[in-house]
């Protein structure tokens, strides 16, 4: 899922500016799961903004609400009344949700309340690790289910680079070397021949290098 982190309160307040009516809008999907922007976080941020305004003597009404999936226009339609009440909407969804809100309610400014960080998985409660860079050309079947694009600091396709020590990455020793993990995984699967095969240079046009991407499913278009 998409992983995000809430912005510092002072930054959120600067984004709100002088707005009198503020809606903090959580998202019930990815950012709720990573504890950055669900219902509880929206409620907490709204309360923090209210108390802060009270202390600073700023006249401001802050409400909070939740959309189950802020990245889908059908879902954000549900909060029309609250969205139009607000001068500024603070989106606690990922950057997608924030943009969908701006597209659906162009007369209102929706500002980001979180920094969208990466696509990842929880490795323990409260700890999330990156797992995917959405490069558009998945090769997990060749690398024992471990992504070298997202998990190797150099995104090497034919690793290891030789710089790792004791199974740790030389760029960031708190991370395991992705190619060490791939080697161990392929060994346990008895498929070590895969690590010897040379992978050709990656065509990055399916990733970000070709600009904004689009998927069209003609079979389901209306």
């Amino acid at each position: 899922m998409i992983r995000a982190q809430q912005k510092p309160l002072v930054e959120i307040e600067s984004l709100i500016g002088q707005a009198k009516n503020v809606l903090v809008l959580g998202c019930g999907t990815c950012t709720a799961v990573c504890l950055a922007g669900g219902e509880k976080e929206a409620r907490t941020l709204a309360a923090a903004l209210r108390v802060s305004a009270q202390i600073k003597g700023v006249q401001r009404e802050v409400r909070h609400s939740l959309v189950q999936r802020q990245c889908e226009p059908e879902f954000v339609r549900e909060v029309e009344e609250e969205a139009l009440w607000a001068d500024v909407i603070v989106s606690l969804a990922c950057g997608i949700g924030c943009q969908v809100m701006n597209e659906r309610y162009p007369e209102r400014l929706t500002v980001p309340g979180v920094n969208t960080c990466f696509l990842g998985a929880p490795i323990e409660h409260g700890v999330f690790d990156e797992r995917c860079q959405a490069c558009g050309d998945c090769i997990l079947h060749l690398t024992g289910g471990i992504c070298p694009i997202a998990r190797c600091a150099k995104s090497m396709l034919n690793g290891p680079c030789g710089g790792s020590q004791h199974g740790k990455c030389e760029v960031n020793p708190s991370n395991p070397c992705a190619w060490q993990l791939i080697y161990e995984r392929l060994l346990s699967l008895n498929k070590l021949e895969l690590i010897s095969a040379i992978l050709p240079a990656k065509d990055w046009r399916s990733a970000r290098d070709g600009g904004q991407r689009r998927i069209v499913r003609e079979d389901v278009r209306l």
């Binding site: 510092p8 309160l9 002072v10 907490t44 923090a48 108390v51 802060s52 202390i55 600073k56």
Partner: peptide, 8 residues
């Protein structure tokens, strides 16, 4: 830490 950010 959050309270400090809020001003408490």
């Amino acid at each position: 830490a959050l309270l400090e950010q809020v001003g408490i």
